[in-house]
């Protein structure tokens, strides 16, 4: 079951209006793996994510989630795809006027007939899994950055998704919190068998969690590398990939920096 593709992206081109940000994108995410989309700032990795979760329509190509093309899916079909995925946004996107618990239980209240008590219990269990049960009745504004991201993951988990999309989960967190978050991702992946698609540029967490990665580049406007992160770091001869994994400056920029 491990090699079965759960997401297939075929010949995708994405952008805004006439501006093409990405083109010729082809890749597969396999069931149960932790898949990372890498790239520098402005490389279009968030655009790619937005296309994969249907927030943005691609200019061309197809995105299949368990065989359903989400580009053309409508109505019931689209809803059934949405039930399979959970998304945790970069800044959490928690609803600020509700407690953390209500944030997590919202989808359950809307889409199930479970009694109130049951919904609260499920929500608290999800919060417990991310280590936030004690903060259940706090407001999002009372949480720290790391807690907000964990609450967002708990909310994304509420409907037991098969695929979890995380947009820069560890950006802006201290190394310890960031490591804890990586630990949580590994745990959820191992115990729940959830497939993860993570957009990130944090090197340490890429090496810790990612099974496979693809890297998109601003200049090439497409995937410049794909594979296991360690292999890319050690064996890639693409200069952009090497720079990224070895934290080097662009040769041109490096020169100007030195002469400044």
């Amino acid at each position: 079951m491990a090699d079965e593709p759960i997401i297939q992206v075929k010949d995708l081109a994405a952008g805004y209006g006439d501006t093409v940000v990405l083109q010729d994108i082809n890749f597969e995410v396999r069931m149960g793996e932790i898949f990372a989309i890498l790239g520098g700032s402005g490389s279009g990795k968030t655009t790619l994510l937005k296309n994969m979760i249907g927030l943005q329509k691609p200019l061309r190509g197809a995105i299949l989630i368990e065989g359903t093309d989400i580009v053309t899916a409508e109505g019931e079909q689209w809803l059934s795809v949405l039930k399979k995925i959970g998304v945790a946004y970069q800044s959490g996107a928690l609803f600020g006027s509700m407690t953390v618990l209500t944030n997590v239980s919202l989808a359950l209240e809307e889409f199930t007939d479970l009694p109130r008590h049951a919904i609260e219990m499920i929500a608290q269990m999800k919060l417990k899994a991310v280590g936030l049960q004690a903060a259940a009745y706090k407001m999002p504004s009372e949480l720290s950055g790391g807690m907000r991201k964990r609450a967002a993951i708990a909310r994304a988990l509420a409907m037991d998704p098969k695929i979890l999309f995380l947009d820069e989960p560890s950006a802006g967190l201290d190394p310890i919190t960031s490591a804890q978050l990586d630990e949580l991702i590994l745990e959820l992946s191992h115990d729940l068998g959830i497939t993860f698609v993570i957009v990130t540029h944090e090197l340490p967490s890429i090496f810790t969690v990612a099974d496979r990665v693809i890297m998109v580049d601003k200049e090439a406007k497409t995937i410049v590398a794909a594979g296991k992160p360690q292999e890319l770091r050690d064996n890639s001869d693409n200069p952009v990939v090497r720079q990224f994994f070895h934290r080097q400056l662009n040769p041109l920029e490096a020169k100007t920096d030195l002469h400044r």
């Binding site: 608290q124 999800k126 729940l192």
Partner: peptide, 19 residues
């Protein structure tokens, strides 16, 4: 066994009550 693992991850002894 796979559900037992889930149980271990999610199991909670008591619910936190609202302040």
């Amino acid at each position: 066994p796979q559900f037992q693992q889930l149980m271990a991850l999610f199991q909670t002894d008591r619910l936190v009550s609202p302040p």
